[in-house]
Computed example of a mutant assay.
Amino acid sequence: MILLCGGEKDSQDRDIKKAKGYWQAYQEKMSKKLRNHEEVVIEQLRNPEMAKAYLDVALEEYEQDGDLAFFLEALQNVAQARSGITRQNLYRDLSPEGNPELRTISLILHNLGYRLSVQPIQ
């Protein structure tokens, strides 16, 4: 908030216009810097190592609490980031309501450059 006091009427009007201009410029600058969370996640998941780590964490979460929806959402995010497949198509194929088969998950992972593997519990 800017508080303008004193001065002549002409200078007050000029100062108010100047302050409004500064505020508008600030808002435009900040709107270019701010992005929503989903945009940032998708951008980061374009990196294959980041995508792999993200899927690893999602699988670990699934092992701990059995929340398949979380893993499927992570797979959707990686597929969207790395392949450009639309979210609508992925949702249809990977939604918990769609009951995705292991074959579907494996095919999507393969197309992204990953594969399912088995590792000993540590």
Rank of each mutant, 00 (worst) to 15 (best):
D56Q: 15
F70L: 05
F71A: 01
A74R: 02
Y54Q: 04
A58Q: 06
D56T: 14
Q44F: 11
Y62W: 14
F71Q: 01
E49Q: 15
L75W: 05
L45H: 07
F70T: 06
A58K: 07
L72G: 01
E49K: 15
Q76G: 12
V57I: 14
D67F: 09
L68M: 11
K52Q: 10
V57N: 10
L59C: 12
Y54G: 02
Q80R: 07
I42W: 06
E49C: 07
V41A: 01
M50N: 12
L68G: 02
Q64M: 14
D65N: 15
E63T: 08
A74M: 00
L45S: 06
V57A: 12
R46L: 05
A69V: 06
R46T: 06
D65K: 14
Y62R: 10
V41R: 07
D67M: 06
E61P: 01
L59R: 09
R46V: 01
Y54N: 04
N47E: 14
K52L: 14
F70E: 05
D65Q: 13
Q76N: 00
M50E: 13
R46N: 08
E43G: 06
Q44V: 07
Y62T: 03
A58H: 09
Q76E: 07
V57Y: 14
N77L: 01
M50H: 12
E43L: 11
P48R: 10
E73F: 02
D56C: 12
V41E: 01
R46M: 14
N47Y: 10
E60Y: 11
A69P: 02
Q76T: 09
I42S: 06
L45C: 06
M50K: 13
E73K: 02
Q64H: 13
L68E: 09
A69L: 03
K52I: 04
D67C: 05
Q64I: 15
D65R: 15
A53V: 12
D67P: 04
P48S: 10
E49N: 15
A53M: 13
A58V: 06
A51H: 11
R46W: 05
N47I: 09
